[in-house]
Computed example of a mutant assay.
Amino acid sequence: MLQRKFDKIVNGFFPNAIDAKDTSIQYMGKMQEEHGINVSKVLMATSLCSDDINVPSTTFFNVLFGPFIMGGLGGIPFAGKTGMTAFAHHIPDDGAAFIFYGPHIGVTLEGEAGRMYRPRQEQPGNSCGALMLALDRFTKDSSYKPDLVEDDYQQMMLETSLLPYRDEILASDHPQVAITEATFKVIDQKIHEYLKATKNEFHVDKVALLGGIIINTDYGLDDYFAVRNFEVVDMKTLA
Rank of each mutant, 00 (worst) to 15 (best):
Q3H: 05
E122T: 11
P146N: 08
K140F: 04
A97V: 12
F87N: 00
F60R: 03
I25C: 03
F184S: 00
E181I: 11
V39C: 12
P67S: 10
V39G: 02
F61R: 10
M84Q: 05
M1F: 05
L158I: 12
R137M: 12
D136R: 03
H104M: 07
V177Y: 03
G212C: 12
S143I: 07
V232A: 12
A171K: 14
N229A: 09
R120W: 04
K41T: 08
M132K: 05
G75L: 09
A17E: 09
L135W: 07
N62V: 03
D218N: 14
T46P: 01
D173R: 10
D141Y: 05
M70P: 00
K199T: 09
N38L: 15
K21N: 13
G212L: 09
I18V: 11
D7T: 07
A182W: 10
H104G: 00
K199F: 14
D205E: 15
Y224T: 01
D234F: 13
I53Q: 09
I53A: 14
G83C: 13
G72Q: 11
F184G: 00
I179C: 04
T183L: 08
V149F: 12
Q121N: 02
Q123E: 08
D51S: 02
A134K: 02
K41E: 15
D93P: 04
F184A: 01
L209G: 01
E110H: 00
F138Y: 10
K196T: 10
V232N: 07
D147L: 13
Y101W: 04
P103G: 00
S172H: 12
D222E: 09
T237D: 15
I187M: 07
N11S: 14
D136E: 13
P92F: 12
M84N: 04
A178N: 03
H104Y: 11
E110D: 04
K41Q: 14
D218M: 05
I69Q: 15
G95C: 05
T46G: 02
Y224K: 04
N54D: 07
D234I: 13
L43C: 00
D141R: 00
R120K: 05
T217W: 05
A79S: 15
D147R: 13
